[in-house]
């Protein structure tokens, strides 16, 4: 799946909260470049913080989009806060827990915490936090025309919702034939 930085939705409270997980694997190309061996220094495969932020934004963005049955084009417009306390490496699992702080026709504010599971001790540990602003772009860009179809919530996101048992939140016009349940 291209540019999908969550693997599955694990908790969903409509209009309020959503949590998603992401398993970090050495098979992911970006870990080989972040960071490769340099001189005598060995490789240091660390999950890039920018992609952790993307995963958090996708989690919160889907939550925001679900409020209006994914009819709005929800765009990440501002990262008011993003803090990471520790690195994340292959074999670990990330959990993004997002909740909506405020939502109105123009957009939404969401808060999120980032947790990490290390299978060696089996414990989830809070390692980061984010405050994000989302814009409903059709409401905020008078005079600017965007494509009719919702290019934000495309086929990739449907796979996530369907595999997480949340396909009922997709409106009939967006759902592929197999998902009309």
């Amino acid at each position: 799946m291209r540019w999908l930085w969550i693997d599955s939705v694990v908790a969903f409270e409509p209009e309020r909260r959503m949590a998603a997980v992401k398993n970090v694997s050495l098979a992911e190309e970006h870990l080989h470049d972040h960071f490769p061996p340099e001189g005598e220094l060995p490789a240091q495969p660390i999950m890039p913080a920018s992609l952790i932020l993307e995963g958090m934004a996708q989690t919160a963005g889907i939550l925001v989009g679900s409020v209006n049955a994914f009819r709005e084009k929800v765009i990440l417009a501002k990262v008011a806060l993003f803090e990471m306390d520790e690195d994340v490496v292959a074999g670990q699992c990330l959990r993004y827990d997002a909740h909506i702080e405020r939502l109105d026709p123009a957009g939404a504010a969401a808060e999120g915490t980032i947790e990490r599971l290390d299978h060696r001790d089996g414990e989830w540990r809070s390692i980061g936090r984010a405050s994000l602003m989302f814009s409903h772009i059709d409401q905020n860009r008078a005079g600017v025309e965007f494509p009719e179809h919702n290019f934000v919530f495309g086929p990739n996101f449907r796979v996530i919702l369907e595999s997480s048992g949340l396909s009922r939140f997709i409106t009939p016009s967006q759902a592929p034939p197999s998902a009309k349940n």
């Binding site: 417009a77 501002k78 109105d104 602003m133 814009s135």
Partner: peptide
């Protein structure tokens, strides 16, 4: 910037 106005509105409400 434009999105800051929405942020300001939300924070003033709170």
């Amino acid at each position: 910037e434009s999105i800051d106005f929405l942020d300001i509105v939300f924070r003033l409400e709170k």
